[in-house]
């Protein structure tokens, strides 16, 4: 077999097509870094607004988890504060009742 025929066989090697969104994926993956670079050049209000918008639009699992955790802790703290307050009220009411009812009073 000559080189030409052999080369023809080697050329039969196929490459499966890439996924159509690969370019988009690469550009998207580079965006946060690119925007940070732009922000570092000028801290304009619009740049800050875009950065905030980005955090809302792009999925950021770590940030979401942290926010959920903070929210949960705040909610837990608030609800335990409420139950403590209601306990205090109940205790106060008890003592108040105890003060008003003296020893030997007819119940």
């Amino acid at each position: 077999m000559d080189d030409h025929e052999f080369n023809k066989i080697l050329k039969a090697r196929a490459v499966p097509p890439m996924r159509s969104n690969l370019e988009h994926r690469i550009v998207q993956a580079s965006l946060p870094v690119g925007k940070n670079k732009a922000n570092s050049k000028g801290n304009s209000l619009s740049a800050i607004f875009i950065a905030i918008l980005d955090t809302l639009i792009l999925p950021k699992p770590a940030l979401s988890m942290a926010l959920v955790l903070v929210f949960g802790v705040m909610l837990g703290g608030y609800s335990s504060g409420v139950s403590e307050a209601s306990t205090n009220i109940d205790v106060d009411a008890y003592f108040l009742a105890a003060e008003t009812i003296g020893y030997g009073d007819i119940l």
């Binding site: 490459v15 890439m18 690969l22 370019e23 690469i26 550009v27 580079s30 965006l31 690119g34 670079k37 732009a38 050049k41």
Partner: peptide, 20 residues
């Protein structure tokens, strides 16, 4: 010079070639 548009053009121009 951090021109993201230029980067995007390069990505669209060569992703297929370098993927292969």
């Amino acid at each position: 010079n951090a021109d993201h548009g230029a980067f995007s053009v390069l990505v669209h121009r060569y992703t297929n070639l370098f993927y292969s």
